[in-house]
Design a protein around this nucleic acid. Sequence first.
RNA 1: GGCGCAUUCGUCUAGUGGCCUAGGACACCGCCCUCUCACGGCGGCGGCACGGGUUCGAAUCCCGUAUGCGCCUCCA
Length: 410
Amino acid sequence: MAPSPTGNLHVGLARTFLFNWLFARGSGGECLLRIENTDTSREVAESVDQIQRSLAWFGIEWDGPVTFQLDRMTHCQEVARDLVVKNVAYEDEGAIRFRMPGEGATCYTDLVLGRIEVQNEALEDLVLVRSDGRPTYNFASPVEDWLDGITHVVRGPDHISNTLKQIRILEALGAPVPEYAHVPNINGGDGKKLSKRHGATSLEEFRHAGYLPDALVNFLALLGWSYDDRTTIMSREELIERFSFDRVGASPATLDYQKLDWMSGVYLRDLPPERYADALVSYLHEEGYDWDDELVRRAAPLVQEKITKLGEFPQFAGFFFRDVQPDGDLGDGVVLREAERVLDRVEPFTAEKIEAVLREMAERLELQPRKAFQPVRIAVTGSKVSPGLFESIELLGPERTLARIRAAQA
RNA sequence: GGCGCAUUCGUCUAGUGGCCUAGGACACCGCCCUCUCACGGCGGCGGCACGGGUUCGAAUCCCGUAUGCGCCUCCA
């Protein structure tokens, strides 16, 4: 994996990383992290940091130390000089250029796309080393592949034409030519490149929205790859075991946020209650909420079935942690008055008892349960949509519940 | 412009000449369940870009057209 050190880790790149990793782990190989830097600024360091943080969250680890392209600069220069000596490269205004053959064709078999062939006359002599001494990407990359003993190069389709050039360089060097897999891009909903206006685009944003890394891994794995005609939910282990390039498609995919949300919900609901609470607590900390951990943990089971991403929690269950303004129809006041009266006497204050007295009240008032409960819900939770009403009231406790019902009547 | 790649329901995809009156999932619509929402169950809508070939037979093979994307930097 060889990202450029530019800001946040984009999902498209993350998906390509994922394929790299799945393949490496599934075939007993190693997975390297190489930074394609052309300078050594502070921004590079920060960017590399950010990339590593994102990958760590994503749950993708690599083998060995992170290497930097620029560190191999002198080695590249030496290799280039050898090529000049061998007369396959030449000096040109201070730069070193590679001599492309004028006839014949260059071809290779792509693990995803099949046989790719280009007439050599379409390939132009390319700069290996700039006049200031820095190697170009198209030179440094194959040299590093050789140096690192890379057997498989997995990258985006924008590199197809680079691959042909790099193969020629590798052959001139007498180096082994790795296998190449060009995996399709991920687009936004309009067929255009994925951008901000389509939604989250960097791993950080998905984390921020409250998706579980496992859910995102599963979802992204299915963008451009499939196991069969019906399997969608797969653990990392299953993905590693099942992944193969011959089942990677060639056409670009669109990121469907609705499907991601569905899958996110599947993973969230599948978590054991204790782990769900853990995830919620640490998510809220990350997002800067100072809500009581114990209360969050007790609220967790009430929302686990209800929300599809952790980011919905503050909106959906915020009424446990802060005062609310009722937003909705509170009815003619009869229900609230009665609710206040019966709830005041509930003992013990448990969901079961609360439900019993409220249902009894509904019957007495000759109201359908839904009609009777809705004003109470709105008064207590502030919203027409909430976790289960009785459980919510229990957790909120008698004082706050009654205070809210009174306030709503004022 | 040149070269390359791609094109199956709205979206992700299965499909490698007969199993396809094209299967699954998400979304959407309807019904059921139900304290709201969600979950779950049942049902429905919906697609092989277009045109030629090859073949007894094509979503699948070939050619062309269209559309989209990528590359054509001393960018990565």
